[in-house]
Write a protein that binds this DNA or RNA. Structure first.
Lengths: 135, 135
DNA sequence: CAAAACTGTAACAATAAATATTACATTTAC
DNA sequence: GTAAATGTAATATTTATTGTTACAGTTTTG
């Protein structure tokens, strides 16, 4: 199972970017995705930590972008929602008496670090504006 | 949660590559990883489908490589074990009345396809021999 | 042929992670 | 003060991964 944080956050930001002036409620955002509003609010809490959006409480409250879609990249979203992409480790406790078991996780770690650098480089080139251009 | 198939398969192949002549039993392989032998046999079944290893049943049976570690790349293993890397979709059933909900999954799909091409390109350059050189 | 030591695989159980829900305190507009 | 929001904790549900059990089939050896 993959955590949907990245996809949910992209979805939230896409919607906000289409209404840059308005404070959109978590219920409205959740309705577009068919998910629970609480999940939306959790991701919004994360976005606020990174100063990507601001929220207003109380009646007529909601959330809006703090910067233009052109200035937000998919890499930003990737970093805010996913620590790293990885393809699993060879178990927490491989047999230390075996030279392969002893070292393999470190090699995998290095490999995954490289993969993440690579993905970041790719995502850095795509802005939210570009990603949503045909919506 | 990430499926450990890639890591388990790398581990199995690493061990086999260190004993290229011998048929190693699933119990021995599992012992090096501290996992259940049945999981090993499942991944071996997959490797056999791709003609990377051969098995011998019965007493003194086991598995060995069909080709040198130099000729197996991490991309081969990636393709055999993971269909794709992805970062989630914006739900199975986003609201079709919303232009964002209607289109976002297709855009994500395209993005993930690109990411996978990228990862494949990177993994293609690393052979099993190289990956295991300091074990 | 019988015993031992394997593979192969299906069915099921256990664990862990992601997602959803409920509940309620707090804030703000009117 | 009421309605409509956010914020967040606690908990339940669902789904995916991983592990286990069980047993049929294969091969070697005596």
């Amino acid at each position: 199972m993959i955590s949907g944080k990245f996809a949910i956050t992209v979805h939230i930001l896409s919607l906000l970017s289409k209404h840059p002036e308005d404070f959109l409620s978590s219920e409205y955002l959740a309705g577009s995705m068919n998910i629970n509003p609480v999940l939306v609010r959790k991701e919004i809490a994360n976005l606020k930590k990174h100063s990507i959006v601001e929220s207003r409480e109380g009646k007529y409250g909601g959330t809006r972008l703090l910067k233009p879609a052109k200035e937000i990249t998919l890499k930003d979203i990737f970093c805010m929602t996913f620590e790293t992409v990885h393809l699993g480790y060879a178990k927490n406790d491989p047999n230390p008496a075996c030279p392969v078991g002893k070292n393999i996780n470190q090699n995998l770690e290095t490999l995954y670090t490289d993969i993440n650098k690579n993905i970041s480089g790719q995502l850095e080139k795509i802005s939210l504006l570009e990603f949503t251009k045909d919506f």
